[in-house]
Write a protein that binds this DNA or RNA. Structure first.
Length: 473
DNA sequence: TGAAATGTTGGGGCG
DNA sequence: ACGCCCCAACATTTC
């Protein structure tokens, strides 16, 4: 009789779960989730992520016949007492890559092994382990394109997904807590819209994947830039919590795609998974990615600490319609379309001159898909402080971006309804509309929609000046 | 995974 | 018919 624990972490699925499949080879298996709610500092989950996690755990529990055991606290203590109570022989889990989790797990692994428990960890969330992709000189890549094309695509192909294992007997530890004790849901009911839009859990993730393959992938390369077009996969949260593995997505896209899908659509989508890999790769090789500018010259950047601007940005009251639409989408739905993410981030950093870490924090709290690696790497990319970042002078003009990527205004009007009667010509720049046009649309600037909080041309110039200053120092 | 400034070209209006 | 100007339209450079 052998008994083993599968410790669920960021792999909340049972198909293509290498560690869970390994556990299932034992006579009795104990599925466990532990919410480490000690004080992990800035890495503690944001409010939106906690909502997602709550529901994802409920779904996972259903798949496990109600046998998922829930705990809070120090995982080392929880596991140790679980092992003692149930006569456990082995503990298995899938690896995480957040620096504090790697440090924590390394210690847990050592202390369990010292007690004679078998411990094995596996890869379930990356297509390529970060330490396997290196340049010829054995150092890590710093630029995405060679990392992906030479590094990833030229090395061994990703592991093929596993099917659901046959599970013998699932056991639930007696001391498991009710999910309410994890305190994941907020006290205020702000997630009404979010509930309608998203389906956390493995089943919901698989439905979303199928729907994307059928409707989103063909035409993805162009369509992905138009927020009204609904061509993006919207799989980020599922990947973040491991309701799907990137391997499942990778092979499903390659194999289940309609024959008429142009190959550049598929290649482009796969490369987006590559960006996710690259973020984890950067985090693994530069563990200070979430806190520190990768380019040291940015340590001297004269960030502004203007609370008023920051709050206007957060609340979608900047007076720039495309930016406000994005920030309100974030607040209302827990998500922002990729193109708009870049625009609102660029606006914060390069027009408001606010430190990218402020944006990172807000996204961390509001995004259902908040992921330490992707969030940190992407903010550094936008700010220009990253290893392979957008040059600082590449500054989005949110008016032009709106005109280009939401020309009919469908997206902007949806989230900024007070502008819905403005003609397309002025939708993205209401301050340029003649008084008569504004009146016709029932808009009083400064009353029911703000004037732009900054002048785009001047603030752009200010950013460029600041940049050339830190560069010359 | 920009945008603005500057440079070049070519067609049409017009004296 | 010719030269000149104007200014899109496009290309290149610069930030």
């Amino acid at each position: 009789m052998t008994r083993a624990i599968h410790w669920f972490r960021q792999d909340l699925r049972i198909s293509d779960n290498p560690s869970f499949s390994k556990t299932a080879e034992h006579d009795e298996i104990f599925p466990v989730y532990i919410l480490d709610n000690r004080n992990p500092g800035e890495y503690s989950l944001g409010a939106a992520s906690r909502w997602w996690l709550h529901h994802s755990l409920i779904e996972l529990d259903k798949e496990l016949d109600g046998k998922l055991a829930l705990f809070t606290g120090d995982p080392s203590e929880v596991l140790t007492s679980l092992i003692a109570r149930n006569g456990i022989d082995a503990v298995f889990w899938n690896r995480c890559y957040e620096p504090w989790l790697m440090r924590r797990d390394e210690q847990i692994k050592k202390s369990l092994k010292d007690k004679g428990v078998v411990v094995q960890t596996r890869n379930a969330s990356l297509l390529w382990e970060p330490w396997t992709i290196l340049k010829k000189d054995e150092t890590p890549y710093k630029v995405f394109s060679p990392f992906y094309k030479k590094g990833c695509l030229n090395s061994a192909p990703p592991r093929f997904p596993l099917t659901k294992p046959d599970v013998k007997i699932i056991k639930k530890d007696k001391k498991s807590l009710p999910i309410a004790n994890l305190n994941l849901l907020p006290k205020i009911y702000w997630y009404k819209d979010i509930e309608k839009l998203w389906q956390p859990g493995e089943l919901g993730a698989q439905i979303r994947l199928k729907s994307f393959l059928n409707h989103g992938l063909s035409g993805y390369k162009v369509g992905r830039d138009f927020p009204a077009a609904k061509k993006t996969s919207r799989l980020s949260s599922a990947l973040r919590f491991g309701e799907l593995s990137p391997n499942q997505v990778w092979y499903a896209a390659k194999e289940n795609t309609a024959a008429c899908t142009p190959s550049e659509d598929l290649a482009h989508f796969l490369s987006e998974l590559g960006w996710r890999e690259f973020s984890y790769y950067l985090l693994y090789h530069c563990q200070c990615l979430p806190e520190k500018n990768l380019q040291q010259s940015f340590d001297l950047f004269p960030w502004s600490s203007n609370e008023e601007y920051l709050n206007a940005w957060k609340q979608g009251q900047s007076g720039i319609p495309f930016v406000d639409a994005g920030m309100r989408e974030l607040w209302q739905t827990g998500y922002i379309h990729n193109r708009v993410r870049m625009v609102v981030a660029s606006f914060l950093v390069k027009n408001l001159l606010i430190d990218w870490r402020e944006g990172q924090k807000w996204f961390w709290d509001c995004l259902l898909d908040a992921d330490l690696a992707s969030n940190s790497a992407s903010w550094q990319w936008v700010a220009g402080s990253g290893a392979d970042a957008a040059p600082y002078f590449r500054i989005f003009n949110p008016v032009l971006q709106g005109c280009k990527f939401d020309p009919e205004g469908t997206y902007t009007r949806k989230f900024v309804p007070e502008l819905k009667d403005l003609p397309n010509k002025f939708l993205h720049c209401p301050w340029e509309a003649p008084e008569s046009v504004l009146q016709e649309a029932n808009i009083k600037l400064g009353v029911n929609y703000p004037f732009p909080i900054v002048n785009l041309r001047e603030s752009r110039q200010k950013a460029l000046d600041a940049y050339s200053n830190i560069k010359s120092k």
